[in-house]
């Protein structure tokens, strides 16, 4: 069996199995590019070096971006935070925006999550079996090309609308995205000579029995938190350790006249100058070490 019909035929086997090596079978060898007009060249090293040059340009741009723009990091996940505006990564925005339209949400949500994306991605996946013509040039395949261009336009449009919507929400609720907020705080802390951004929770309250604490409880802690840790997500700073970044004079100024365009109100009317002085003196003592 191992021999061909002619006993003198040279038989080549694949490995040492009894499977005969196929000769001249179609589509088993890559096409010979010398058939194409022009100058073809070997993959390694000639072509790969040229492709590497493109790769280097991309790599340098990529590293510049990486160094110029550190990866964002907000504040630790807090499931009870109801004010957070959820936002997927940018490449999911088109789908996120799409699902906001009434005719693919609510009662029709199945159309939005499975129906239309299913048809669109299914068609993309099976494109070679839908567009079976021999013609390869896109301008000779008007239907396929038009469908793709329409999809691309809607993709870009939905992404843009989604992003604008997000920016609008931020402006409306007067929110700074957490990772920006955090970066800003870290920078402020660094500028004011603090070595590191200390986790607020670890900073003790200094001299908590002081009578100033009663004034604080009445006036300040409804915003700054009964534990004096502030509220990171709505931008209210902690009072623990506030003496590290502000002097007594600065604190008097902030309490008397407010700060941040009314975000921190003025207490001129509700506290006497003596009381403000008392509170500021006590706050100035709130140092981390």
């Amino acid at each position: 069996m191992a021999h061909g019909h002619k006993s003198n035929e040279k038989v080549v086997f694949v490995g040492d199995s009894r499977v005969r090596k196929r000769t001249g079978a179609p589509n088993t060898t890559p096409p010979d590019y010398s058939a194409y007009p022009g100058k073809s060249e070997a993959f390694i090293p000639n072509f790969l070096l040229k492709e590497w040059m493109v790769g280097v340009v991309v790599l340098v741009g990529f590293l510049v971006l990486t160094i110029a723009e550190p990866a964002p990091l907000g504040y630790p996940a807090d499931p009870t935070n109801a004010a957070f505006i959820p936002m997927p990564d940018w490449y999911f925005l088109f789908l996120y925006q799409f699902l906001k339209y009434p005719y693919v949400a609510g009662d029709y949500i199945v159309l939005g999550t499975v129906g239309i994306p299913g048809v669109a991605f299914g068609a993309l996946l099976l494109a070679p079996f839908l567009d079976t013509g021999k013609e390869r040039r896109f301008y000779r395949r008007p239907v396929t090309t038009a469908l793709m261009i329409l999809s691309l336009i809607s993709l870009f449009y939905l992404t843009k609308v989604s992003w604008d919507h997000y920016e609008h929400e931020l402006a409306k609720t007067n929110t700074i995205p957490e990772h920006h907020l955090r970066e800003e705080r870290a920078r402020e802390a660094a500028m004011s000579g603090q070595k590191d951004e200390q986790p607020v929770a670890n900073i003790p309250i200094v001299d908590g029995d002081d009578p100033a604490m009663d004034i604080l409880k009445a006036q300040c802690l409804s915003c700054h938190g009964t534990d004096m840790k502030g509220n990171e997500s709505s931008g209210v700073p902690a009072l623990r350790g506030v003496g590290d970044s502000h002097s007594k004079e600065e604190l008097v100024e902030i309490i008397t006249n407010g700060k941040g365009g009314g975000a921190m109100p003025s207490f001129k009317a509700s506290l006497s100058a003596d009381e403000i002085d008392q509170v500021a003196t006590w706050l100035a003592k709130q140092k981390a070490e």
């Binding site: 964002p72 990091l73 907000g74 504040y75 630790p76 996940a77 807090d78 499931p79 935070n81 957070f84 505006i85 959820p86 936002m87 997927p88 990564d89 490449y91 999911f92 789908l95 996120y96 699902l99 949500i109 199945v110 939005g112 999550t113 499975v114 995205p177 957490e178 990772h179 997500s233």
Partner: peptide, 27 residues
Amino acid sequence: GFTGYLLPWDNKAYFATKVGIQIAESV
């Protein structure tokens, strides 16, 4: 991309994943 987005476990990661899972649930 979707699974990696959750891993830093900040608010952005948490709430995006919550929404993503809600969308998957509606199938």
